[in-house]
């Protein structure tokens, strides 16, 4: 299959501005976008820089903006894009370090702000904490998150509010709020019940469209909104 890869380039020591460079490629059938990038790096220009690791859609390294949409480069078949020209840019709205590599620091800072770990007040039992399959199902979707930052990059609220936790971190909050083993739900709801938390979400659903694992962060955030309201009402009832 013959295609042209048009790739955004930027080398900070040399380039004032990012620019696009085109590479006509001959790719095998079923080649992925990552295969195309590797072919460029291996045979044409060794300086082309991008992150990749597992190449099987589980490590979250290679989220990119490809032909106007968010994809993992590794599991996106070139043919499925149905285009002669494949335009590859780094995740929009994140600072570009070099070529397709962006600064993930702000994303992971928000991950940490979300208290992303199970917290309990009772000591652990000798064996496992019991949890029914139904209880587990409540957060099953959220554990598929690979922290690739596609949703974060796609969210207009993130673009305008640098303090906003964003869809991935809020999904992580809901993952623990809905885990029957977690015992600090009220603390978690207090954490997100503010202008830079759940109320910043305007249900635009870009995050859901962007997610390469088909997770729906907007849904999780709406569940958190309901729970924060319920928490406030109970507080109000008690006076």
């Amino acid at each position: 299959m013959q295609v042209v890869f048009k790739v955004q380039r930027y080398q900070p020591e040399r380039d004032g501005q990012p620019y696009f460079q085109s590479f006509p490629l001959e790719l095998p059938e079923r080649a992925t976008v990552l295969d195309g990038l590797h072919q460029i790096k291996d045979e044409r220009d060794g300086s082309l820089s991008f992150r990749r690791s597992c190449r099987s859609a589980i490590c979250g390294s290679c989220a990119m903006y490809i032909n106007g949409a968010y994809h993992l480069a590794c599991n996106t078949g070139v043919e499925t894009l149905k285009a002669q020209e494949i335009v590859v840019s780094p995740l929009p709205h994140l600072r570009v370090i070099k070529d397709l590599i962006v600064d993930m620091q702000p994303f992971f800072e928000k991950f940490e702000r979300a208290l992303p770990y199970l917290m309990t007040t009772t000591p652990p039992p000798e064996r496992e904490r019991l949890q029914s399959p139904e209880q587990r199902r409540a957060f099953e979707e959220m554990i598929n998150c690979i922290q690739c930052a596609a949703c974060y990059s796609a969210c207009p609220m993130v673009w305008t509010d640098p303090q906003y936790l964003g869809p991935a971190a809020l999904t992580k909050v809901y993952r623990f709020v809905s885990d029957s083993r977690d015992e600090v739900g009220r603390q978690r709801l207090a954490l997100v019940d503010n202008d830079h938390g759940v109320w910043r979400c305007h249900t635009i659903f870009n995050c859901h469209i962007a997610c390469p694992k088909n997770i729906n962060p907007t849904w999780s955030i709406q569940q958190l909104k309901r729970k924060t309201i319920a928490r406030r009402l109970r507080f109000w009832e008690r006076g």
Partner: peptide
Amino acid sequence: IYQMEHLGVPFNRTSQGTL
């Protein structure tokens, strides 16, 4: 493994709620 469960690993469960 129990310790990993205590840290939060979302292991699949039996109908009794055990691992």
